[in-house]
């Protein structure tokens, strides 16, 4: 049953992707992208990665939809004729895709317990987390304790990015208001 659900979902994913590529209306693309994210989140759930599925649903289906619509507001509706030929980008995409597929060939089979990633530090985390950190949740212990500096760096980057966006938006609004009052003065 699980593999059947996976097959149906992956087929729908492929159909949605092809539809996104062929879609000319940008608003339709945004909606199809949100459909894609929900399908992808379902695939993640079937693959037993519920936390990843939640991230996919919140980032892919909710936030990206809003951000893409915001971007749509700023772009033109008419498509400009491409300046270069279409053959080179197609070949490049096919080559990169083929390389990625080629790269997956040497990966260990899905779900195997003796893959390299499960042999390196994972046994230690599983055996020692409670004794070393006192947290019963291994994911929390890894994020906040074993990789504490990593998480600190990440939050710093996100904090700085947030400040940057706020400064940019604040500047835009002030300029808008200045233009508005200038226009009113002229009247």
């Amino acid at each position: 049953m699980e593999s059947l659900i996976n097959m149906v979902l992956l087929t729908l994913l492929a159909a949605t992707t092809i539809a996104i590529v062929g879609q000319r209306s940008l608003l339709g693309v945004v909606i199809l992208a949100s459909v894609y994210s929900f399908l992808m989140a379902s695939v993640m759930i079937v693959l037993d990665a519920v936390d990843v599925a939640m991230t996919e649903a919140s980032v892919g289906a909710a936030i990206s939809t809003v951000l893409l619509l915001g971007a749509l507001h700023l772009t033109k509706t008419r498509e400009e004729a491409p300046r270069h030929g279409r053959l080179l980008p197609l070949l490049l995409c096919a080559a990169v895709g083929a390389m990625l597929v080629w790269g997956t060939l040497v990966l260990p089979p899905f779900g195997t317990p003796d893959a390299v990633i499960h042999q390196h530090v994972v046994p230690r985390y599983i055996n020692e987390t409670v004794r070393e950190t006192g947290s019963p949740n291994i994911v929390t212990a890894v994020l906040a304790d074993y990789r504490g500096f990593d998480t600190l760096g990440e939050t710093t980057v996100i904090f700085i990015a947030g400040i940057g966006v706020m400064l940019l938006l604040g500047g835009l609004r002030r300029r808008d208001r200045a233009q508005d009052s200038a226009a009113e003065d002229q009247r």
């Binding site: 149906v8 979902l9 729908l12 159909a15 949605t16 539809a19 209306s25 608003l27 339709g28 909606i31 199809l32 949100s34 459909v35 929900f38 399908l39 989140a41 379902s42 649903a57 289906a61």
Partner: peptide, 29 residues
């Protein structure tokens, strides 16, 4: 039902069809 909703989202033809189909896909998920 999911397949039918995705089909409607792909075929359109209006934005409302797509928005409704997208919402249905979310509910079915």
């Amino acid at each position: 039902a999911l397949a039918l909703a995705v089909l409607r989202a792909i075929k359109g033809p209006t934005v409302f069809d797509r928005a409704l189909a997208g919402n249905t896909v979310g509910s079915l998920a």
